[in-house]
Deep mutational scan, measured.
Amino acid sequence: TTITITINGEELRIRGDHEEIHKILKAWEEDHNDEEIVRLIRELAER
């Protein structure tokens, strides 16, 4: 699965399995701050 998210003008492409993507979207849905979401995404992007 690949998704693209733009946060603060920075486009981040994430490839991951369903569970990893779900974790990010769940954090977003629960209204975590952008920095935390960006950190989760970067961790995935670095793999």
Rank of each mutant, 00 (worst) to 15 (best):
A27W: 12
N8A: 11
E19G: 09
R47Q: 15
H22D: 13
E19F: 10
L40E: 02
I7E: 00
L12W: 14
E46Q: 03
T4W: 14
H18V: 15
R15E: 11
N33M: 15
E10S: 05
R39E: 09
E20G: 05
T1G: 09
D34H: 08
I14F: 07
W28P: 00
I5A: 01
L44P: 00
R39Q: 10
E19W: 05
R47S: 15
E10K: 09
D17T: 14
G16I: 11
D31N: 14
L40I: 13
E35C: 08
A45F: 03
N8F: 07
R39S: 07
R13Q: 14
W28G: 01
W28S: 01
K23G: 10
T4C: 10
T2W: 15
R47V: 15
I7M: 07
R13E: 12
L25K: 06
T6Y: 14
H22N: 12
K23Y: 11
I14Q: 00
L40P: 00
E36I: 05
D17V: 07
H22V: 13
T2V: 13
D34A: 11
E30Q: 12
E20T: 07
I14L: 13
T6Q: 08
E11K: 09
E36M: 05
I3Y: 08
E20R: 02
E30M: 13
A45H: 04
D31P: 03
N8R: 10
H22T: 14
T2L: 09
I3Q: 03
E10T: 11
I3C: 03
A27T: 07
I3H: 06
A27H: 07
I37A: 07
L12F: 15
K26Q: 14
T1A: 12
E43Y: 06
N33W: 15
D17C: 04
T6K: 12
I21A: 03
D34K: 11
D31H: 12
H22F: 13
T2E: 14
W28L: 09
K26I: 11
I3P: 01
E43C: 09
R15T: 14
D31E: 06
E29C: 04
N33S: 10
D34F: 13
N33Q: 09
E46H: 04
L25F: 08
V38N: 04
R47F: 15
E43N: 03
D31F: 09
T2P: 03
L12T: 03
N8T: 03
K26R: 11
E10N: 07
D31C: 08
L25C: 04
I7L: 08
R47K: 15
T2K: 04
I37T: 10
L40M: 09
I37G: 01
R42A: 08
E35V: 12
K26S: 10
G9D: 04
H22Y: 11
I41F: 04
L44C: 03
H18G: 11
R39P: 01
I3M: 08
I7A: 01
D31I: 07
E46S: 03
R39N: 09
N33P: 05
T4L: 11
I3N: 01
I21H: 01
I3G: 02
I5R: 00
E29K: 12
E20Y: 05
D31Y: 08
E46C: 09
A27V: 07
E29W: 09
T1Q: 13
I7Y: 04
E30G: 06
I37H: 02
E19C: 04
E35P: 15
G16Y: 06
L12S: 02
T2S: 11
E29N: 13
I41A: 03
K26V: 10
L44F: 06
I41P: 00
I14R: 01
I37F: 11
I24R: 01
T4K: 12
A45C: 14
I3S: 02
T6G: 02
E19V: 10
N8S: 09
V38G: 06
R15P: 08
G9S: 04
I7P: 00
N33K: 06
E35S: 07
T1H: 14
G16E: 03
E46G: 02
T6C: 13
I41W: 03
L40D: 01
E36Q: 06
E30P: 12
W28D: 00
E36A: 11
K23S: 07
G16F: 05
E11T: 13
H22M: 14
I7T: 01
G16A: 09
E43D: 07
E46M: 03
H22I: 04
T1W: 11
E30F: 12
E36S: 08
E30T: 12
D17F: 11
K23H: 10
E30I: 10
E36D: 12
E10I: 10
L40K: 09
E36Y: 09
E43L: 06
K26D: 07
I14N: 00
T2I: 14
E46K: 03
D17Q: 09
H22A: 12
D34N: 15
R42W: 13
A27E: 06
I41S: 00
R42Y: 15
V38E: 12
E30Y: 11
T4R: 08
W28Y: 13
K23D: 06
R13F: 14
H18C: 14
I21S: 01
R39G: 05
I37R: 02
R13L: 07
E36H: 10
L40W: 04
T4D: 03
T1C: 07
H22E: 13
L44V: 03
E36T: 09
E30D: 13
E36L: 07
H18A: 14
I5N: 00
E43S: 03
N8I: 03
T1V: 15
T4S: 09
I21G: 01
E30L: 13
D34L: 13
E29T: 10
L25A: 04
I3F: 09
L44I: 05
D34I: 13
D31M: 13
E11H: 09
K26A: 14
N33G: 11
L44T: 01
E20Q: 03
G9Q: 04
G16P: 02
V38L: 15
I24M: 07
E35K: 07
T6N: 10
N8E: 10
E35R: 06
E30W: 10
R15H: 14
K26H: 09
L12H: 08
L25G: 01
N33I: 14
I7V: 07
E35G: 06
E46F: 04
I3W: 12
L25M: 10
E20L: 06
L12Y: 15
H18E: 13
R39H: 05
E43Q: 04
H32V: 13
H18Q: 13
E20W: 06
G9Y: 04
I5C: 02
I37V: 12
R39K: 13
E10M: 08
A45Q: 05
D17E: 12
N33T: 12
G16W: 08
V38P: 02
I37K: 01
T4V: 14
D17R: 06
I5E: 00
